[in-house]
Simulated assay, not measured.
Amino acid sequence: MGCRLRKCCCLISLRVGCMISALLLFFFELIAVPLGNARPCCDSLEGALSVAYRVLEIVHFVGCLMLFVASFVKTSVLVLIFLFTSCLRTVLHPAFLVAEVLIWDADLIDISLSITGLFLGIYFWIVAYAFYFKCREEVLMDSPRVTISRKIDSIILVA
């Protein structure tokens, strides 16, 4: 991909941008629709949707934790976990937004925070995607290159 981000918000490095985005996404996960309106587990569609929503939010919270850790240790696998959980959340979030409006009777503040979190999540996914490739490139550049030359019956390794 030729047009990956080089910096987050044009000023901040991708590593620091991933730290900030993980913290902001933690915040949006913590202020999501509160558990006070939860219904018994699987008695109705409302209860089943509530459980599915909570599971999705917990999975995304763990993904945000992985991104935060990855920004310190620069491990592309942890960023990949975040990318997967964030993509899953972004795809399913509009359905849960409809459920917030129609079933859970969320107020305007909850809906606006949910929409803001969705759009920030999409931008932070792009930042994490760029950071993922940066981590992979650094690993490839740090690993020693081994050239294998063949002679008649032996292999010579040149570092």
Rank of each mutant, 00 (worst) to 15 (best):
L30A: 15
I58N: 10
L56N: 04
H60W: 05
R15P: 07
A22C: 11
S13P: 02
V33K: 03
C3Y: 15
L65V: 15
L67R: 09
C42V: 06
L24W: 00
R4N: 15
M19F: 09
F27V: 12
A70K: 13
I20S: 12
P40N: 00
C42F: 01
S21Q: 11
V62L: 12
L45G: 04
L23C: 13
V73I: 14
C42P: 13
L14C: 01
H60E: 05
I58A: 13
S50T: 11
C41M: 05
L35M: 12
R39Y: 01
A38D: 01
V69F: 07
F68L: 14
S76L: 14
G17Y: 03
G36K: 11
T75V: 07
T75H: 12
F26L: 04
L23N: 15
C41P: 03
F27G: 00
L45E: 03
V59Y: 05
K74V: 01
F61V: 11
L5S: 07
F26W: 14
V16E: 12
R4S: 06
L49H: 07
L35Y: 11
S50I: 08
R54F: 00
F61R: 07
S71C: 06
V62M: 00
C18E: 03
Y53Q: 07
L24M: 06
S71E: 03
L49Q: 04
R54P: 06
K74Y: 00
E46D: 12
L5Y: 09
F27P: 10
L11W: 14
V55P: 05
F61K: 01
E57H: 09
C9D: 14
R6D: 15
E29R: 10
A52T: 10
S21H: 02
E29D: 08
C18V: 09
C3N: 15
L45D: 07
F68E: 08
L14H: 07
T75M: 04
R15T: 06
C9M: 14
F26V: 13
L65A: 11
